[in-house]
Amino acid sequence: MAKVDSASNRPVRNYGDLNPRYFRTGMWSFVLHRISGIAISVFLLLHIWEITSVVRGGAEGFTSQMASMAAKLWVVGEWLLFLALTFHGINGIRLILLDLGWGVHEHKRGFWTVFVISAIIIAVGSYFFVMRFLAYPWAR
């Protein structure tokens, strides 16, 4: 194959280790921490849009905004936010402890501890989301 001049300026590198198949626990917590962090930032923007409805439409605007969001789709969104916040918060505590020098020799146990605590909180909390989901209509 002839060497392509424009492409040859781009160095060849092996990115095979970014395949999730080969991720170990630390890589999973790193990636999930970043994804949940971005999700929480997106929520903050949505939250600002939602509460500034009072600026756009006064008390009435705010009330109708809140009413329109009492729908199944938003419950799913809130549940996803709940997943992200739970993992991000608990994993964040692990990261702070690591930076203080704790658990450096037990990193796998640290990951699974975060995983189990998050899973329990998510399992319990999800019950309330299911109840809300069933109680709300699809749209208003």
Partner: peptide, 26 residues
Amino acid sequence: CHTVFNCVEACPKHLNPTESIQELKK
């Protein structure tokens, strides 16, 4: 260093670079 521990998993001599980095970090 985001304490991903890939270096600990990778090291063929079973060192713990994260331990060294965390001490330097403090």
